[in-house]
């Protein structure tokens, strides 16, 4: 740090400052992960002592688990939707479209509001007699009227809609912050050459934002696998007929409603592995941004 005489003392002091944080990380992350691994390989699906990977075989044969992980994968559709919409809106804001400051403030509001609170609102709006269907009726689009959350084929799609509503402002502002530091002359030169808005997007905006787009994509993949519990609990409660169950909801329901800790912890382990893959993915992207 400063000079050699101080250095050895400083190193020890450094450890003292690390200590509370490390203790906390151990208690909240490390020990639970070790316990989880222990639990899932020691206990059998019906409670007997079964060693090895029988639990995982049981888990992967469970159609409900397959449904949950498939739904998490299906939710990845938010990645392209949100990237494209965020690119469009951030470009509009970047161009200083009239009223851009107000738009910028409003677009970010859904980001800060609780899913639990707004989910209740959306479950009213998306009801059979809710605002969405009433609006469609007024617009004479009666053929589009649906039971958005009650229809087995549509419920997950409706959840995607609510996620997009909530997350759009984040991506837009993220991209906008990066766009502000792009050299304006790039755009001006291209415009003089007669490039269209779409060409500007393909040849300048996307290449300039590519790292941040990758970063956002990883963030959305993480959301789709690790942070959708609130949406599911409030909007559909996993239904109708388990059509919208996801990993986190599976763990909650089996662990804390049905008290089947063994089944829940085997599923939690699978999501731990998914988490580790995502950590590595995120690390690669962050490393590239840094360099």
């Amino acid at each position: 740090m400063v000079n050699h005489s101080k250095k050895s003392i400083n190193q020890y002091a450094g450890y003292i400052y690390l200590l509370p944080g490390l203790a906390w990380i151990f208690f909240v992350f490390a020990i639970p992960i070790i316990q989880l691994i222990g639990m899932s390989i020691r206990q059998g699906p019906v409670g007997q002592e079964i060693l090895g990977f029988d639990n995982f075989i049981f888990t992967f044969r469970d159609p409900l688990f397959i449904k949950a992980i498939t739904n998490n994968i299906k939710l990845l559709v938010i990645v392209p939707i949100l990237i494209i919409l965020s690119l469009i809106f951030s470009t509009f804001l970047y161009e200083r479209i009239k009223g851009w400051q107000i738009y910028q403030t409003i677009i970010f509001i859904p980001v800060i509001l609780a899913v639990a609170a707004m989910g209740i609102v959306f479950s009213q709006i998306l009801q059979l007699k809710g605002l969405l269907n009433e609006t469609l009726r007024v617009l004479r689009l009666n053929f589009l009227i649906q039971d958005w959350l009650g229809n087995q084929g549509l419920a997950l799609g409706s959840v995607v809609g609510v996620i997009v509503w909530k997350e759009l402002g984040f991506g837009t502002i993220l991209f906008l912050a990066r766009l502000m530091s792009v050299d304006k002359e790039l755009y001006e030169a291209a415009r003089i050459d007669g490039a269209s808005g779409f060409q500007l997007m393909i040849h300048i905006t996307i290449p300039q934002l590519i790292h941040i787009i990758e970063f956002y994509a990883v963030l959305l993949i993480v959301t789709a696998f690790s942070f959708v519990f609130d949406y599911i609990l409030i909007l559909t409660n996993g239904g109708p007929n388990n059509q919208t169950i996801v990993g986190e909801f599976f763990v909650y329901k089996y662990g804390f409603i049905y008290n089947r800790f063994n089944i829940a912890s085997s599923v939690a382990i699978v999501y731990l592995l998914v988490g580790i893959v995502l950590m590595i993915l995120r690390y690669q992207i962050v490393k590239r941004i840094d360099s």
Binding site: G21, I25, F27, V28, F29, I31, P32, I33, Q35, L36, M39, V222, F225, S226, F227, F229, G247, E248, V251, Y252, G255, F256, F261, A264, S265, A268, I269, Y271, L272, G275, L278, M279, R282, Y283
Partner: peptide
């Protein structure tokens, strides 16, 4: 630093069962 900050990716659902037992 990498290990600690990477943890933000992990779903809390992974941790809740052992944490509940503790």
């Amino acid at each position: 630093f990498v290990a600690v900050t990477s943890l933000l990716v992990l779903s809390p659902a992974v941790l809740v069962i052992p944490l509940f037992k503790s």
